[in-house]
Amino acid sequence: MPEIESLSDISRLISDIQHKKFTRSYDIALRTEELLQELISKGHWKSAKELMNLVKTRIQLVRENLPQEATAPNIMRHILKVIREEYQSASKKKDEGQSLHELVTSTPSNVLDYSDSLINLRSSILDHLTEYKVELESSSDNIAAQALEHIHTNEIILTVGKSNTVEKFLKRAAKDRIFNVIVVEGAPLYAGHTMAASLAKSNIQTTVIADSAVFAMMSRVNKVIIGTHTVLANGGLRAASGIHAVALAAKHYSVPVMVLSHMYKFCPIYVGSHNHEAFNVCASPANVIPYAFGPILDKIEVNNPVYDYVPPELVTLFISHQGGNSPSYVYRLLSELYHQDDYDI
């Protein structure tokens, strides 16, 4: 049965993510893109509708198995939008959107079915996909290219843990400006250590502090620049654990918080309450207390959450390859990336 077989590609991706074979979300993005390329060029589909259904099943599978994973579903959602657009331009029909305007001007015949099979659809979608791949590969550099607009001389910048995007950003700025960076070590993963070592290699004056010193240092920090795992639909973040406290301290001292993020991290999902089990995931407590600690281990409970929810009012700016945006504009970016009907898949 071709339907069941064809899901093996996504299952492989899911299991790779679960086994932590990817160190960066960028790698996941590339893999997803490859998967989609395979699907579109070699998959068994005749009309746009069938293709969309194939993609939708995959999105659902990922969301079932990895509720926190956002990169892969986001890219697939974007492809759905691409498919719709290509279909519309090929069949010269306009889509019924969701806006007041559309509400008022729609006619009964406007409901699009996407079921016509068009000849050039496959190639046009593939073209679009290649464009998207190029965009993906260059987005890191594009973000880094904006570095000089945001960092001036003699600034003290605070960053948390390790983010490849932030690293590139700071290194790019360091080529022309002299500034200091304070790296928060980010226990229990201590990713900040690698980040600091790498920044120091590029001749940036780096100081490493423990998580506990953030509030103390914040009064002298000029900017906080961080990466994130996901950007939620309301402009909030799902970021590494501990970043909420950093953002609160920054708010207290009125320090701007800038979040560098690629477009595939923007997720159209609203989170009702961040205590919801699907929002956060807990990692092994061995990083917090080693198993060798002793017999009291069975008398205590240890929590080691991986993510943190940061509400949108604590974020000042989102920097993506298209430029900077305020958190209140995220809804617009989302509507450009994904189609309204695909928000909920």
Partner: peptide, 9 residues
């Protein structure tokens, strides 16, 4: 009915 909006939308 247009979806979940932030006040700025």
């Amino acid at each position: 009915d247009l979806g979940i909006l932030t006040p700025s939308a």
